[in-house]
Amino acid sequence: MNLFRLAGDMTHLVSVVVLLLKIHTIKSCAGVSLKTQELYALVFAARYLDLFVHFVSLYNTVMKLVFLASSFTIVWYMRRHKIVRRTYDKEHDTFRHHFIVLPCLVLGLLLNEKFTFREVMWAFSIYLEAVAILPQLVLLQRTRNIDNLTAQYVFFLGAYRVLYIFNWIYRYFTEPHFVHWISWIAGIVQTLLYGDFFYYYILSWKNNVKLELPA
């Protein structure tokens, strides 16, 4: 495993920890999109179907379990926890997330590495992950007071995607047989979606002012 990949996984892990920290300790999910969190839970459920069938490494298994458990825990907190759920900004989290699941499933059926159940679900999860951040970005645009933890959560999530691209470039030159076009193209699309956010995040950090995204 190369350094970019490890750094990517770690920033992904940090993003989840930041979000859980906010939800668990502050008992607030203000500014967090439940739609995005539900999509991530679906992404991991679809992608990690191979968890008990295909063993890669202990690291891989543990990380998969962590991402599965954390995504479902976050959804549970936002829907069921009696204090946390009251802080959910339902009025502004209006992205029609169900409507992006079906196109991703169709795309997974059409464009996959092999037409088997697991491969179709894998491709589906890759396409869905690429767009899963959209409800969160829309909610951020509509949020007047974006708190630091929410902004940091999205920042780390975006950083993870950027680092994965560096990881693929590295692997492309060091492992000649390593080519996954589906994850590369979807991954680049996913990273581009963060472009705007990164721009304003860095700007707010440089000028030491609160993050605000223009609508």
Binding site: R5, V56, Y164, H177, V179
Partner: peptide, 10 residues
């Protein structure tokens, strides 16, 4: 090839 490459990423 690509199709039989192990999916070792998360």
């Amino acid at each position: 090839g690509a199709a039989d490459g192990v999916k070792d990423e998360l």
